[in-house]
Nucleic acid binder design. Sequence first.
RNA 1: GCGAGUGUCGCCAAGCGGUCAAGGCCCCGGAUUGUGGUUCCGGUAUACGUGGGUUCGAUUCCCAUCACUCGCCCCA
Length: 444
Amino acid sequence: MDNIQRPKGTQDILPGSAGAPAHGSLSHISLWQWIEATARQQLGFAGYQEIRTPVFESTELFSRGVGESTDIVNKEMYTFEKGDRSLTLRPEGTAGVVRAYIENGLSRWPKPVKLYYAGPMFRYERPQAGRQRQFHQLGVEVLGLDNPQVDVEVIATAMRLFTALNIPHLTLQINNMGDEQSRAAFRQKLQAFFKPYLSQLCESCQVRFEVNPFRMLDCKESGCNHIYQQPDCQSLLQEEWANEESQQAFRQVCESLTALGIPFERNHRLVRGLDYYTQTVFEITSNHLGAQNAVCGGGRYNQLVETLGGPPTPAVGWAVGLERLATLVQKPAVSQIKAYVVHDDLPSAIALQQRLLGETSHDETSHEESSHEISCEVDLSGKGFGKQLEQAAKRGATFALILGAQERENKQVQIKNLTTGEVSSCDFAAIKPMLLSAKPQSAP
RNA sequence: GCGAGUGUCGCCAAGCGGUCAAGGCCCCGGAUUGUGGUUCCGGUAUACGUGGGUUCGAUUCCCAUCACUCGCCCCA
């Protein structure tokens, strides 16, 4: 029982074989590959470019960028020391992207700079449904523009991605965090209001009162909730406390979303757990996820680049949790043709495989070909033809290509349709068109 | 960090104090050494999470511990 296990909160994603399909689709690699491919395609179409930054960064990047008052920085970071350096496994993507933006002079690129990233993030938390210690995020950042319509474009991009992934029934919640001036003013107002109740609030709210009173509004403790439900408190929350300029921008966001037919709910208590947000914040949730129901979260962060030492640069972005996304996604069946070469001479079989999979000249590529995938595997067991055919079936092949001494002599193969059992002969040169013209199987 | 639930072969799953470790799936071999997925036969596995305790006896009862799962907090 002293076998080494994977660390708590991490996941193996397995290939899943034709014979023994993976238990949960979540751990099936093909689902991940499809999600990633779809996302890259969608974001690429929309003019976003991928950026890859390190999986670990200086601890200070996160404590400064994400914010000293956040749970992430206070209790969730994987931090280690090397020499006199303190390093941390990235708990989120934005800080690293902004660091790279500053460090590599992307601030000199034509605005806006539209980036996306995807990869593992690390947070030391108690794992539960929809929460892992190593999890994966896909995120976009648009830097350099303060136009509220950019917020809308970014949200619309997220919605388009969800559509491409066949995810129904998502809820978009948005709120206005105000600009810097408004926030400072409202912060004082909140503190003044809650001061009399301070002793009745939960421990964490007492801390929040000092470091970030906005996050008190998000508290789910029943005691605090009771106070927040009071009419005078509610009216305080409902009021538009941001200054006119900020409200104007927020109204534009709402109007454009409506014009685009993207439904949303205003949630005055949505403040998000990261300190860097200003103005528009939003969260996209699903009710099919259990307790951790946020699929996507984001907002505008007009101060962050400056905070991290860059030139004043307004920006918006979001991140989606890929594990949560994966539980919601409907992956369409892909038609594919899989051939399995049954043979008594491995070199000849490999030659046949090369013929099928080898580089195709462009003029050889037909329209039909692009709509089907063709794969070809060669038997490696060296067993009798019967056993090889058995393997072909177990491996989910649609066709067996039988290549024995006789066939080699005639420069032919037998093509056996493993669904119908039909067998036909075919010249070497005609194999590929023959397979492509066959009706492909649906594979999950 | 705090609650709750679960822990029998790779997977599913019986047994709940007395020949105790079924069964199914998967895997491997054979019937079938140039034609499979059906069928039949056979085979592999250090499987009762770990450590104590109760008992004449513990997979079954108790305690502890660990792991996993779900929830709180918070977030993706």
